[in-house]
Amino acid sequence: MDVFNQIDGLLPLLLLGIFGLLLLIQLYFLLFVYRKLAAYKVPSETTNAAELPLSVVICARNEEENLRQNLPKVLSQDYPAFEVILVNDFSEDESKWLLKDLATQYPNLKVVEIAEHVRLKHGKKFAVTLGIKGARYEHIVFTDADCVPESDQWLRHMAQAFTGGEEIVLGYSPYAKGRGILNALIRFETFHTAMSYLAYALKGKAYMGVGRNMAYTKSLFFRGKGFAAHMHIPSGDDDLFVNQNATPHNTVICIHPEAHVWSAPKTTFAAYYRQKTRHAGASKAYKPAHRRMLATQLTSAFLFYVTAIALLIAFPQYWPVVLGGYLLRLLLQLLIYFPVMRKLQVKGLIWTLPLLDFCYYMYICINGFFALFRKEVRWK
Rank of each mutant, 00 (worst) to 15 (best):
R179F: 05
G180E: 00
I181N: 03
N183P: 02
A184C: 05
L185W: 01
L185C: 06
I186K: 02
T190W: 03
T193N: 14
T193D: 14
M195H: 01
Y197G: 01
L198S: 07
L198R: 01
A199Y: 01
A201C: 14
L202M: 09
L202G: 13
G204M: 03
G204S: 04
M208I: 05
R212D: 08
M214G: 07
M214P: 03
A215P: 06
Y216F: 15
L220Q: 07
F221K: 09
F222T: 02
F222I: 01
R223H: 10
G224L: 08
G224S: 13
K225C: 12
K225M: 10
K225Y: 08
F227H: 14
M231P: 00
M231R: 09
M231I: 11
H232F: 12
P234I: 14
S235K: 08
D238M: 06
L240T: 10
L240W: 05
F241E: 07
V242A: 15
N243M: 10
N243D: 15
Q244P: 05
A246R: 04
A246Q: 09
P248W: 00
I253L: 13
C254Q: 14
I255R: 03
H256E: 12
H256G: 12
P257K: 03
P257I: 06
H260N: 03
H260V: 07
W262N: 07
S263D: 09
S263L: 08
A270L: 07
A271F: 00
Y273P: 00
Q275E: 14
Q275C: 03
Q275I: 04
Q275R: 04
R278Q: 13
H279T: 14
A282V: 07
A282P: 05
S283H: 09
K284N: 12
R291Y: 04
R291M: 13
R292L: 15
R292Q: 11
R292A: 15
M293T: 08
L294Y: 04
A295Q: 06
Q297N: 10
Q297L: 13
L298D: 12
T299F: 04
S300Y: 00
S300F: 00
S300C: 02
S300E: 03
A301C: 03
F304N: 02
T307I: 05
